[in-house]
């Protein structure tokens, strides 16, 4: 890893990306609102948020595709406001859409992307061959990109993002819209790349993916980062948050009256999971005895009640709702 020193700042050795008070304004709309964060060298950093929260705009500012309205970005210690081009030689970008050239083959696409980073012919040909083999695309290397399947396109786009061996890789929704098997392969590739020493900045809609891959997660809502923590820290935050799964007897032919339960217990959240089960959540202590008594009174035959560990999805929903409330 090349840590380039900069006279204007004392660099945290761990931080490969440092964003300070980063904002992006589109006329009256503030897409990103004074966010600050660091991405540590060697980690997989998750950047999560609902649609339109500012994830892609943030990536675009970090990669040089969008200009920041205020703030500063340091990549590998380089002030991007002064020299984004040098910083760009350290980074690889895999955008949310596969954006390679339709009329070039997989092999030609990779070689072209290598050439953009000034790689010599022999080197880029060698690296393209390696990557095509590694990603299981060697047999299709001479096929035009437009004839690739969605999963193959995604894999080739990732390969194009790392052809120049970047130390930092931005992955914007890498598994969106592809089949389960390709998504699994891509997740394995992400983990392998990280083990090889590539720092990864990942945005995803799939919370399970973030849960499996990320070392730290930042939640962005309405352009503001409202929480940045490790998964363990996030779970700890929600220790007081209780979720119980109620499973009713299957012969119970009546639908679970979720809305009735909700009006009877307004402090709890009721979320149907299947025709005969639901999650009941509370930010504080759940009074199970009252719930069970109510079910018995109303002839809802309870088969099982079990405590559920809060998932990242629960945390995400809670944090984003809280964030949206704060903003409004």
């Amino acid at each position: 890893m090349n840590n380039i020193s900069h006279p204007d700042m004392s660099i945290d050795d761990q931080a490969i990306v440092r964003a300070e008070n980063l904002s992006k304004r589109f006329e009256a709309v503030v897409a990103v609102d004074r966010i600050s964060f660091e991405v540590h060298t060697g980690e997989i950093f998750g950047f999560l948020g609902p649609n339109g929260a500012g994830k892609t705009t943030t990536i675009n500012m970090l990669t040089g595709l969008a200009r920041m309205s205020t703030g500063s970005i340091f990549i590998n210690g380089i002030d991007c406001d002064k020299d984004h081009k040098t910083a760009q030689s350290f980074i690889g970008v895999v955008p949310d859409e596969s954006n390679l050239y339709d009329d070039l083959s997989g092999y030609e696409n990779l070689c072209f992307c290598g050439a953009l980073y000034g790689m010599r012919k022999e080197l880029r040909q060698k690296r393209a061959t390696e990557l095509l083999k590694h990603f299981g695309l060697w047999d299709s290397s001479n096929k035009l990109f437009k004839h690739y399947s969605k999963g193959m396109k995604r894999k080739l786009t990732i390969a194009a993002g790392i052809i120049h061996s970047p130390s930092l890789l931005f992955l914007d929704e890498p598994t969106t819209g592809i089949d389960v098997s390709s998504a699994r392969q891509i997740r394995t590739m992400i983990r392998d790349l990280n083990q090889e020493g590539v720092t990864i900045f990942l945005t995803t809609h799939y919370l399970e993916e973030a849960e499996r891959l990320c070392d730290r997660i930042a939640f962005i809502v309405n352009g503001k980062i409202i929480r940045l923590a490790t998964l363990d820290e996030l779970v700890q935050d929600f220790e007081s948050y209780e979720t119980v799964e109620f499973i009713f007897e299957s012969e119970n032919d009546k639908a679970i009256p979720t809305s009735v339960l909700q009006s009877r217990f307004p402090d709890y959240k009721f979320k149907p999971i299947s025709p005969n089960s639901l999650y009941i959540s509370s930010a504080g202590k759940l009074e199970l005895s009252k719930l069970i008594a109510y079910c018995e009174e109303n002839e809802m035959k309870l088969y099982e009640a079990k405590r559920v560990k809060p998932s990242l999805e629960d945390i995400f929903v809670n944090i984003t709702e809280e964030g949206e409330r704060h903003v409004s």
Binding site: S89, V93, P95, Y117
Partner: peptide
């Protein structure tokens, strides 16, 4: 969006 590749290159 292939042109973006050129813009984010060094």
């Amino acid at each position: 969006k292939a042109f973006d590749r050129l813009i984010i290159s060094p």
